[in-house]
């Protein structure tokens, strides 16, 4: 099938520059029942993240007497895409994303403070337009900070890569589908740790290195959206 033209007159299809993020807005504390939560809109993505716990471990035999265990569910709503109705229940893609997302937060939560408990992270993609795992991690980072559970840092994530011979960041759905390389990455900015890294496509080492520079440059905007969400919720009136 003919690959659609993703770059016109030096701009991306939605008019963005190569290093331009889609509008990003995060609100903290939107699910009242949760210990912590966040709602995120990033371009057309709409994502809810909620954290519950520390709580009793179920089933009991999974409990770790030395630290809390983390469970993570990433799921796309069946109505979330412009395409056909999605199948309910976890598919293989969601299973993998849930696993690598869980691993990001296992690194940052001070699990040793809550032995024999469980911390749940739920990420629900209500509307999807590319980069949903990154949007989910960025939202869950805020939800976790909102929960008050002690963490070492708030991670951010973003996906992008290569379109033709151009590097670009924050792919939307069509770019994600037809790009020449796609790299979701999650980083703990204060600790300088790469916590999630996936990639597929074709990219030289030099391109990958330049792409990481690009991630570094845009990271400030994502981090400030996360901080603003928390400042907004916890600001003291007057």
């Amino acid at each position: 099938m003919q690959k659609p033209e993703l770059i016109k007159d030096g701009k991306r299809l939605d008019g963005r520059d190569f290093e331009e993020l889609r509008p990003l807005k995060i609100v903290a504390g939107i699910i009242k029942n949760a210990t912590g939560s966040a709602y995120l809109e990033w371009g057309n993505n709409k994502v809810l993240a909620a954290v519950y716990g520390p709580k009793e471990v179920l089933p009991k035999h999974l409990a770790d007497p030395e630290k809390a265990i983390v469970k993570c569910r990433y799921a796309m709503a069946p109505f979330s895409s412009l395409e056909e109705h999605g199948r309910a229940g976890p598919n293989r893609r969601a299973t993998e994303i849930s696993k690598v997302t869980k691993e990001v937060f296992e690194n940052l939560i001070m699990l040793e403070k809550f032995p024999s408990t469980e911390i749940d992270i739920f990420i629900e993609i209500l509307q999807s337009d590319g980069g949903t795992r990154s949007a989910g991690i960025t939202a869950a980072g805020v939800a976790l900070a909102d929960s008050g559970i002690p963490i070492r840092d708030i991670p951010f994530a973003v996906a992008g890569g290569k379109i033709g011979d151009k590097l670009a960041i924050d792919f939307n759905k069509i770019e994600d589908n037809y790009s020449d390389a796609d790299i979701p990455i999650a980083i703990s900015p204060n600790l300088d740790r790469v916590l999630l890294l996936q990639m597929d496509g074709k990219m030289t080492k030099e391109e990958f290195s330049r792409y990481l520079d690009m991630v570094e440059r845009v990271s400030k905007q994502i981090i400030s959206a996360q901080k603003n969400a928390l400042l907004e919720k916890y600001k003291v009136n007057g």
Binding site: V100, L195, Q198, M199, T204, F208
Partner: peptide
């Protein structure tokens, strides 16, 4: 020539 896939776990 190329990196084709990466996965951190």
């Amino acid at each position: 020539e190329y990196i084709h896939a990466m996965q951190k776990g």
